[in-house]
């Protein structure tokens, strides 16, 4: 199990994965908006999405767990 942690604080703009979906390392799975800039967040490992802990529009801080990959 690998946690996908937020690399910076901002607002969740897009989530490009669903629970149960197969994802590959370095896929662009989430986009976080900070200071009007879109920051892509890359998947840390290849596997299946076990849980997504955030929703579009959520405010997150650096280090928050966004999703769990199995």
């Amino acid at each position: 199990m690998v946690n996908l942690e937020s690399p910076l604080s901002g607002k969740i703009l897009e989530i490009n994965m669903e629970v149960g979906q197969q994802v590959n390392e370095d896929d662009e799975v989430i986009i976080i908006e900070a200071l009007k800039m879109e920051n892509p967040v890359y998947c840390p490992a290849t596997g299946v999405v076990k849980e997504i802990k955030v929703r579009i529009g959520d405010q997150v801080n650096e280090g928050d767990i966004l999703a769990v990959i199995e």
């Binding site: 690399p7 910076l8 604080s9 900070a34 200071l35 009007k36 800039m37 920051n39 892509p40 890359y42 650096e62």
Partner: peptide, 23 residues
């Protein structure tokens, strides 16, 4: 502000796309 910070973040992610320099 924050144009210069955005430029830094952009160049940082061009060199290493997992580099988040914005904040």
């Amino acid at each position: 502000v924050p144009m210069a910070a955005r430029v830094v973040a952009k160049l940082g992610s061009e060199a290493n796309r997992k580099n988040y320099l914005l904040m």
